[in-house]
């Protein structure tokens, strides 16, 4: 949480001002804004993780006030593209897998695996690119060059998978932020950062124990809103930190709407994935968090996400992952 404290400090500071201003505020009204039209750009959401094939999703930007119907959102997903990955010796042409080809009973699983809403998958032909025959799996220390041809554009990006850094230990501690509560808390971790500067991390967690409906509480790893940090101030140190529980965007799961929102609960079994990132990927996720968080925050200077994709937006990121499990008992 101190890492969140650090990265969200600016926003907190400014939201205090906003809160203060709003105590005096008179009114808020909806207005129409005329924005210039610009050509859509291609956005890459691509990851290659140790021991797994690459997964690439391609979308395009839409005008801010473009229609927001399911059909319009679905149309922002690109289904025609050529995607290749060069691993230093071989160029692999990735296979396209589209939701129209997925049997209905597997849609939920596909949604969990890709993070794309199940309704979108069911109602539109949404495609991802991967290597179905597993002939390309991420290896630590290796660089991968992604090339994409889509919408008459050529995009290029290179990423390296850093060595994974394991967590020393994990434990659960009650948050005691709600009166009378003795079951909700955060996951704490101890990390020994390697001695060389330039380690960048992303934190994700998954609850594997069953919820009230009998299925696992999380179908996949979920990143909290502020999920990345670096060793700028912690190089070579062994230190403790914590994270709250992230929710999927637009989640309407019960535990994302009731008092459990943001907390892990006594009895949860949680797998934490600590991802090592290269600097370009880190800068992307950091600026992505900041961009999303500052939407509507007038006091911050608007800043675009820092992409590592030439000719487009988004990220092509190598993940060096290490896993560790904890059972939530204070």
């Amino acid at each position: 949480m101190e890492l969140q404290l650090l990265s969200s400090m600016r926003h907190l500071n400014l939201s205090i001002l906003a809160a203060l201003a709003l105590t005096l505020v008179a009114c808020e009204k909806e207005i129409t804004v005329d924005l210039p039209e610009t050509e859509p750009r291609v956005v890459v959401e691509g990851v290659i993780e140790t021991g797994a094939p690459p997964v690439v999703i391609l979308t395009r930007t839409q005008a801010y006030f473009a229609p927001t119907s399911l059909a319009s959102i679905a149309a922002s997903f690109i289904s025609e593209a050529t995607v290749t990955v060069f691993d230093g010796s071989t160029t692999h042409v990735l296979d396209r897998v589209c939701s129209s080809a997925i049997p209905e009973e597997l849609l939920e699983e596909a949604a969990a695996a890709t993070g794309i809403d199940v309704n979108l998958l069911a109602n539109a032909n949404i495609c991802i690119w991967t290597k179905l025959d597993m002939s390309l799996l991420g290896e630590a220390g290796r660089s991968y060059r992604l090339e994409v041809q889509a919408d008459n554009k050529n995009l290029r990006a290179t990423t390296t998978i850093p060595n994974a850094v394991p967590l020393d230990s994990l434990w659960f501690r009650l948050a005691q932020q709600q009166p009378g509560d003795d079951s909700l808390g955060f996951i704490w971790a101890r990390l020994s950062d390697p001695d060389t500067i330039g380690n960048h991390y992303r934190w994700l967690a998954q609850r594997t124990n069953a919820g009230p409906d009998g299925v696992a509480k999380d179908a996949n790893f979920v990143a909290p809103f502020f999920s990345v940090f670096e060793d700028r101030y912690t190089n070579g140190l062994t230190f403790d930190f914590n994270f709250n529980r992230g929710a999927r965007p637009f989640s309407n799961a019960e535990d994302d709407e009731n008092e459990e929102r943001g907390y892990f609960k006594r009895g949860d079994t949680v797998i934490v994935k600590l991802v090592s990132l290269d600097r370009a990927s880190f800068k992307f996720y950091e600026s992505f968090q900041s961009n999303v968080a500052s939407a509507g925050d007038v006091f911050s200077n608007p800043a675009n996400v820092i992409s590592n994709v030439e000719g487009g937006l988004g990220v092509w990121s190598g993940w060096g992952s290490s896993l560790r499990t904890v059972i939530c008992q204070p």
Partner: peptide, 13 residues
Amino acid sequence: VNRYFFEGRVVSE
């Protein structure tokens, strides 16, 4: 001026 989705979140351009 534009928006796009990344990991399901709305990003401003």
